[in-house]
Design a binder for these strands. Structure first.
Lengths: 159, 159
DNA sequence: TATATATAGTACGATATCGAACCAATCAAT
DNA sequence: ATTGATTGGTTCGATATCGTACTATATATA
């Protein structure tokens, strides 16, 4: 039997995995037909951190293989939520830009989530959420920086 | 702009989504070829809560469509980590049992994660993990119970 | 008992994820 | 400038996820 530290970490990741799944289902229930969580996540990321990045940068940010990002971006393109332009500084790469429709959709989804959030806040002590948020952020940053030290299993990092 | 409650919840689920993905990559790096996180998760679940349940029960527990669970169990069966027997009490259903190999594998994976956990504990204040764990559990329980009040989008619930 | 409804599981098709292999462009080292 | 290694992106094949539709069995109700 592992020690308490191991047990806590095991439990931590188990709870997080379940919460991720349940919250993903909630999000996807508010997305238009044909879009799933990764599509929305990419839109949100670009609005927050700026568009005009290369797909490979997005793949790194989300820690997914570049083939996966290619596929996700194709979906967003098909729905006219982003558009791809050539990168004037590098003939190999493209740059991803949000369309007006992309920006609008992101806002609409957030609005549509409002009642879900209200319902949540009505049944759960939001002070507890606020209390754990900084730790989760710290945790995410730690894991995110840490992975850059581990050998990648494939082209998940940098190709 | 949504209020602080909305912003916190949005942030909460975003962080959890990222942590889930990073931790899943860590777990899968320790799994044998051909097995991914859901396979391990099902093994772990059966060891903790007992085997001999029907696939539909597992699907409900993990909040995945029953077709997904069928597929996951097929993978576990192919690797001889579980075996399916008919349910003597219900001709429609089967019961899923762990094999010795299944039990062993689960232990081995946990052992293999040991160094990862040690590394983690060396770089992150474990008291913070212990502190947020009860809230995450409470959160998971809330979401999990809450979903039973919402209309399902398909056969994710109960078929 | 007969029939309608509900449930467990599977088959199938569409899309998603991901690793391997590949191409074109870039960069590094002469 | 030439050559070799690296990098961004795509193609392709394997597996995963999920919704729809279907079969078989069970349950409810006439």
């Amino acid at each position: 039997m592992p020690d308490q530290t191991h047990a806590d970490l095991f439990e931590l990741f188990k709870e997080i995995s379940i919460i991720e799944q349940l919250s993903r289902v909630l999000l996807e229930a508010r997305l238009p037909e044909g879009l799933i969580a990764p599509h929305f996540t990419v839109l949100n990321h670009m609005i927050r951190l700026g568009d005009g990045r290369a797909p490979i940068d997005l793949a790194r940010s989300f820690q997914v293989p570049k083939t996966t990002m290619t596929h996700t971006l194709k979906g967003l393109e098909r729905h006219k939520l982003v558009e791809m332009r050539p990168n004037p500084d590098d003939g190999r790469s493209k740059l991803v830009y949000l369309t007006d429709a992309g920006r609008s959709l992101r806002s609409e989804v957030i609005t549509a989530l409002g009642p879900d959030f209200e319902h949540f806040a009505a049944g759960f002590d939001m002070r507890k959420v606020s209390a754990i948020l900084p730790v989760l952020t710290e945790l995410r940053i730690f894991l995110d920086e840490d992975r850059n030290g581990s050998p990648p299993r494939s082209d998940r990092r940098s190709g």
